[in-house]
Computed example of a mutant assay.
Amino acid sequence: MEIDDSQEKVPGSVDEKATQKALPNVTPDVAALKETTTNAIEENSTINEGATRAETTTPASSLTTSRSAVPSTLSSVGPTTASLKEKFSAQKIPLQTDFANLIDVADCERKAVGLSPAQPGGAGAGLLLDAEERLAVLPGNGISVGASVGVMVEANKGLIVGANGVAVQAGNGISVGASVGVTANAGRAIIVDSGGVGINYGSTLQVTNQQLGVSDNFLQRKTISSTIPSLVSATCFKIMSIPSGMKNAYAQVYITSSLTGQKFVFTICCDGGVSASGGTYSMSISNFYRPSAGYAVTVLYLYRESNNDMSVCIFINDASPTTVSMNYSPCDIQGFTLYPFIQVSVGGPPPETVNSINSNSNNSVQGA
């Protein structure tokens, strides 16, 4: 380096004329590069205007890379760009620490793309260097890279990608509005409320230990009772019926009267619309018990109503008040609807009577 003595010298400055040396086309380790640079720096500076020449030396042991002091949380590396440029500006003599800072800053670039010797794994997760050694997004796992980076979704899995981003696809019970929800088909016994999706079940079912099962009360026998007041004359009371289109309906009930202690089992098998549509029926009384004092229920009638529903009524022939009851198991009622002794006629059987069975003995009738 040539120094022009005719010009005034500023401490720490050099002439702008400097020989540029081409850098080798390699990227050595940062520590090795710093050591080489340190040995190549002349650490003496010229003191201006006749001052004594002072020799300034920075021990190599005091130089540390910014990376060596980086804590677990990231911090800045080196001085500001403006400060670093000023150190290497015209008529300045950069010090060893300035070269170290410059190397640290440059090293950040190759570390960012995964080209440091200490990074055998290459670029970070989800990134790669393309054919032109540009940092790019790694395609795959739902990420597509073309003219732009996008998201791919598997078809028919409930997601769609539109101009506004990824969204849930509505349909098949999924509704999308202000929020995503589930649409339940009320006719399929499914309900949706603030607690989530559930099953709409009746009294015959129950949930125990997070499992749906038959209610404990389902198989228990049930009783329908009614107190009949004093009657002026014999009266018919409807106890069960089936719709006209029903086939192979079945019922078995245990009928009792509190006044006389009468007891018997009534069983019926019947089609809806008997006589009008050619259906069949059979009725029977069993386990009959009649005390010597008499009995309240004398006859049971099978009759057709105006809408072709088939119904059964009991004929009570007792002037004193009595409580009549039907005791049954839910498993013994198929197709029939039971009623709490509804009055239908007075003084005789109802119109459109198909057949009757006496309740004073074990017997049966059948017909079509």
Rank of each mutant, 00 (worst) to 15 (best):
T19G: 05
T19N: 07
A22P: 07
P28N: 04
D29V: 06
D29L: 11
V30Q: 04
V30I: 15
A31D: 10
A31T: 11
A32Y: 05
L33K: 09
L33E: 08
K34V: 08
T36H: 07
T38F: 12
T38Q: 07
N39S: 13
N39T: 11
A40S: 14
I41Y: 01
E42L: 10
E42S: 08
E43Y: 04
N44A: 12
S45V: 15
S45Y: 11
T46F: 11
I47M: 05
I47V: 08
G50E: 07
A51N: 10
A51F: 07
T52P: 06
A54Q: 14
A54K: 12
A54E: 14
E55Q: 14
E55W: 11
T56M: 10
T56I: 15
T57V: 12
T57K: 15
T58K: 05
P59Y: 05
P59K: 13
P59E: 10
A60H: 11
S61H: 04
L63P: 00
L63D: 00
T65Y: 06
T65W: 07
T65V: 03
S66W: 10
S66F: 13
R67Y: 15
V70F: 12
V70E: 15
P71L: 08
T73E: 09
S75H: 10
S75Q: 09
S76R: 14
S76L: 10
V77N: 04
G78F: 01
T80K: 13
T80M: 05
T81N: 09
T81Y: 07
S83Q: 11
E86A: 13
E86G: 08
K87P: 01
K87G: 03
K87M: 08
F88L: 08
F88G: 05
I93V: 15
I93K: 14
P94H: 02
L95N: 09
F99H: 01
A100K: 01
N101H: 12
I103R: 00
I103T: 04
D104V: 03
D104K: 04
A106V: 09
D107P: 00
E109P: 00
E109V: 15
E109Q: 13
R110T: 02
R110N: 05
R110K: 10
K111E: 02
K111G: 02
A112D: 07
A112S: 14
V113S: 00
G114R: 00
L115D: 00
S116V: 02
P117R: 05
P117Y: 03
P117V: 05
A118P: 01
P120F: 02
G121P: 02
G122S: 04
G124C: 04
G124N: 02
G124S: 12
L129T: 01
L129C: 03
L129G: 00
L129M: 02
A131C: 05
A131E: 15
E132R: 08
E132H: 07
E133P: 01
R134M: 09
